[in-house]
Structures are given as C-alpha cells and as structure tokens.
C-alpha cells in the first residue's frame, strides 16, 4: 500500500507520476542522451522518465538547474536552498520541500530553521538574515509575484551582496519551475507497512 503525503517533512518521500513515464526500452536516442543513460548508469527515476516526454526541455533544464543551485561564488549553497524551500512551501510541493529542507539541514548542519518553518510556516521565528531571505523568496514565488522594494531593501539591510541577491532570485524562480513539474505531474507517496 502507498499513501499520499500531505504534510511538510524533511523525510524525502517517493514520487508517483500521474502520467505514464517513458519506458527506458522505448526511449529514442535523443531521450537516452538527455537521460544520460550509459551502460554503467541505467538507473533513471520515474520523475526524469516522465520529463523525457519533452526531451528538448529536459536537455536544457538539467544543466541550468545545476548551475543555479551549485555554481561557485555568490550566495552560499545552504542559503540558495532557503530560496528553493520558500517557493516549494508557497506552491505546496511536498516532495521538493522535503528534498531542499533536507539539503539545507545538511549543508547548514542545523535542523532548527527547517523545523521552525515546517512547524509555523511564515510565522516562524527566524534569525534576521534568514527571515529576509525567506520572505523575499516566498513573496517572489506568489502568483503574481509579490516581492516589493521593501523586501529588496530588507535583503540589503542584512548585508546581502548584489551577487547573493541575484542567486536568491534565481533559486526561488527555479522552484517556481520545478514545483510546477513535480507537484503537478505526480504525488509524493510513502509505502505503508501493513500492521
């Protein structure tokens, strides 16, 4: 039995597609290339196999994702994860929120921020710099985007450099994209152990 997860958690669930993913044995050469399937790497997630239906998008999205989240310089990786998490909370993408809360906790070696956010949402009591980062990323993720000059001012007041602010804009925006795939095309699920 599997059940759909509805509450935010750092315990990363499985993901069950709502459409039929590409079958690896039916994949075209272009799909195999975008999937980075090699004889020594034949494990591909259901999520990536689902996205392989639109191979042109998949091929450009993966390197873009990695550059925004992992490229050197600018904002720290842990703080970029706050941008990703804020957007995922706005869009209620339980799966993305779990992955990126977990990454934040590991990178920052601290579970208190994500514990507080999952317990109290935007009312959570956060250190001032995290507060400014989370609020900007959260409002930027609303539809229509709702961050304003006062949110930008709060980032600068907390000492964020222009390079860090750009990275925050990018990570929050990127999850506006990722959430609309992950949360729309599938469900976060967990196997239940029969009693």
């Amino acid at each position: 039995m599997t059940r759909v997860i509805h509450k935010f958690t750092r315990n990363v669930p499985d993901w069950r597609p709502r459409v039929v993913p590409v079958r690896l044995e039916d994949a075209t050469p272009a799909q195999l290339d975008a999937l980075k399937v090699t004889p020594s790497n034949t494990k591909v997630s259901a999520y990536v196999l689902t996205l392989a239906h639109d191979v042109e998008s998949l091929a450009v999205r993966s390197p873009l994702f990695n550059a925004i989240m992992y490229d050197q310089g600018g904002m720290s990786r842990a703080e970029r994860e706050i941008g990703a998490l804020a957007a995922s909370m706005v869009n209620r993408c339980i799966y993305c929120a779990a992955v990126h809360a977990d990454r934040h906790a590991k990178l920052a070696k601290d579970e208190s921020l994500t514990d507080a956010l999952f317990a109290k949402g935007e009312q959570a009591d956060l250190p001032p710099r995290d507060r400014a980062i989370f609020d900007f990323a959260r409002k930027a993720a609303e539809a229509p985007p709702a961050a304003g000059p006062e949110d930008m001012e709060a980032l600068r007041k907390q000492g964020l450099g222009e390079d860090e602010i750009l990275d925050l804009i990018l990570s929050s925006a990127l999850f506006g994209w990722a959430n609309r795939l992950m949360h729309v095309l599938g469900d976060p699920v967990r196997e239940t152990v029969p009693a």
Partner: peptide, 19 residues
Amino acid sequence: VRLCELVAFLAYQIRVVSG
C-alpha cells in the same frame, strides 16, 4: 508534460525578470 514544461518555464522567467 509539454504543457507543464511551458507553464513551469514561464513561472521561472517571469520571476527572474521581476526580481
């Protein structure tokens, strides 16, 4: 999937521009 990628990309682009 194609439709989701279109809308999802736009959500990203709109927010980078707005930021």
